Amino acid sequence: MNKLNVIENTIPVTTYRTLRVNSGLSPKTIAAAEIGLANSLYSVMIANEGNEVIGMGRIIGDGGCFCQIVDICVLPEYQGQGIGKLIMENLMNYINNELPESCYISLIADGDADKLYAKYGFKDTMPKSKGMALKK
Rank of each mutant, 00 (worst) to 15 (best):
N51R: 11
V53S: 04
V74C: 02
S26M: 09
N97P: 09
V21Q: 11
G57A: 04
N51V: 01
V74E: 02
N48G: 06
V70L: 11
E89T: 09
N51G: 02
S26C: 13
I59F: 06
S43N: 07
R58M: 14
V70F: 04
Y16A: 06
V74A: 03
V74N: 00
L91W: 09
I95F: 08
G61P: 00
G57F: 03
I30L: 12
E77M: 08
L37A: 03
C65G: 14
Q81R: 05
A33P: 10
Q81K: 12
G82R: 01
I83W: 00
Y42P: 02
N22P: 00
M56T: 04
N93I: 07
F66K: 14
L19E: 13
G55S: 11
M56Q: 13
Q79A: 05
C67R: 01
L37N: 05
N22D: 14
A47H: 05
G57V: 01
I30M: 11
A47C: 08
K28E: 09
Y78D: 00
G84R: 01
Y16N: 09
I30G: 08
D71E: 03
R17I: 10
A31E: 14
T29R: 08
D71Q: 08
V21F: 08
G61A: 11
R17V: 12
Q79M: 07
N22F: 03
S23F: 13
N39M: 01
D62S: 05
L86M: 15
A32G: 05
E77C: 04
L86C: 06
I60V: 15
L25H: 08
S23R: 06
C65S: 15
M88I: 07
I60C: 10
A33R: 03
N39G: 04
